[in-house]
Design a protein around this nucleic acid. Sequence first.
DNA 1: GACCAGGCACATC
DNA 2: GATGTGCATGGT
Length: 224
Amino acid sequence: MRMKERKRNPASPPLRAVYAELFAAFGPQKWWPGRTRFEVMVGAVLTQNTAWTNVEKAIRRLRRERVLQPQALHAVETATLAEWIRPAGYFRLKADRLKSLTTALMRDFDGNLNRCFKLSDEDLRAWLLAVKGIGPETADSILLYAAGRAQFVVDAYTRRVLERHDWLAAHASYDEVARLFMENLPRDVALYNEYHALIVQLGKTYCRPQPRCASCPLRHRLPR
DNA sequence: GACCAGGCACATC
DNA sequence: GATGTGCATGGT
């Protein structure tokens, strides 16, 4: 490849320093805000492209209806489920996705999460990704926050923060971004848990589509 | 009233 | 493999 055609590699992100600054700025985030493993799984689906405040309303309704267990949720009519989760947005779509999750749980583990979570990291990730409606971020959120596996979660904020600091190659894939963190940090569930939550907090507060860099703890400025 | 939110599947090129 | 589109409520 000739020089002028070669893509410039982005600077390697100072991941430990960034973590330290975010933790100093925001403190512990205490994620995931869910009471049980299954509630975390349901929340992971409901929060797809949706603000958590809207998800909370739907979760409260499901709790009130006493269906936050695989068998119970599976038994609910899809149309009824859709009405219960309406405040979370995309409610018909997400009712189908929750149903496809409980269908897979019933089919493969008789609705027993202990059996499901006996799978290896790799097998559990593959099993989740095979469920229609569960993509890489939702699968990894479940791996990290429900199953306690050391899998880094990448979301739109993660990508945006890295891109704005010129720490990410153009068009990097989901798995490439996840690997960037996992190959440059200790494989530590508690660290990945806190780091992703801190990035979300940073993103919500400062790294928005319309940037608010002025008082951002990472002290980055746009435009460069 | 416009913009945005803790994505994903599918169609099309 | 890349890009565009539908899905929907509620907060700012």
